[in-house]
C-alpha cells in the first residue's frame, strides 16, 4: 500500500501497511535519525514530530493517518549553514546532556513558537510536558526556548 505525504518540504510516498507506526517509516523508510524510539506508547516525547502544525507522537500514529499531510522533523527545520533559532538556542544554552530527547524537545518547542511567538515560562513548560529528559536539563531547555523566542522576535 502506498501512502503519500509531505516530509520536510518534499513529496514522498511510503509503501507499508496502513497501521505501521509513522516512527518506523520515518526512521527506516525515509532514513531519518531525529525521531527516536523511546516508549512506543506516546509517554516520553522522544519521537515527537510536527504533523500539519501540531506536535504528534510518531510512535503512536499510523502511516495511514498522515496520508496527504505535512510532516516536519528536526532534519527539516534548519541547514548546517543556517540553523533554526531553536537549534542555535539549544547550542547557545548547551541545553542537553545525552541528547536523546533533544529532537522531540525542539519539535514540541517549534510547534509552540509557530503559533505563539512570545510564550510565558508556563506555556513553555506545558508545551513540553509530554517530553521526558532523564539527564535533568529541563531548566536549560526552558532557557533555550525562551532565547529562541527572543531571537525570532527580532
Amino acid at each position: 500500500m502506498e501512502t503519500a505525504f509531505r516530509l520536510n518540504g518534499a513529496e514522498v510516498t511510503a509503501e507499508a501497511d496502513d497501521d505501521t507506526p509513522l516512527l518506523y517509516i520515518l526512521r527506516n523508510d525515509m532514513g531519518l535519525n531525529s525521531p527516536k524510539y523511546g516508549c512506543g506508547l506516546a509517554q516520553c516525547g522522544s519521537c515527537r514530530v510536527i504533523v500539519d502544525g501540531d506536535v504528534a507522537p510518531s510512535c503512536s500514529i499510523t502511516l495511514a493517518s498522515v496520508a496527504g499531510k505535512t510532516i516536519e522533523t528536526l532534519e527539516g527545520i534548519g541547514t548546517p549553514g543556517r540553523l533554526h533559532p531553536l537549534q542555535e538556542a539549544f547550542l547557545a544554552e548547551q541545553a542537553a546532556q545525552c541528547g536523546y530527547c533533544t529532537a522531540g524537545m525542539i519539535m514540541a518547542a517549534k510547534a509552540l513558537l509557530d503559533r505563539n511567538r512570545d510564550p510565558s515560562d508556563n506555556e513553555i513548560r506545558e508545551a513540553l510536558e509530554r517530553n521526558l529528559c532523564r539527564c535533568g536539563t529541563y531548566h536549560r531547555i526552558i532557557r533555550a526556548v525562551r532565547r529562541a523566542a527572543r531571537e525570532m522576535a527580532r
Binding site: 527506516n28 532514513g31 531519518l32 535519525n33 531525529s34 527516536k36 524510539y37 522533523t73 528536526l74 532534519e75 534548519g78 548546517p80 540553523l83 537549534q87 539549544f90 547550542l91 548547551q94 542537553a96 541528547g99 536523546y100 533533544t102 529532537a103 525542539i106
Partner: peptide
C-alpha cells in the same frame, strides 16, 4: 567550551547506536 557532540545532536545526525544501519 561548547560540547563537541551537540551540533550533530541538534541537527538530527546519526550519532546514536540506534541510528546505525
Amino acid at each position: 567550551m561548547p560540547r563537541i557532540d551537540l551540533p550533530a545532536k541538534v541537527m538530527g545526525k546519526a550519532v546514536f547506536l540506534h541510528d546505525l544501519r
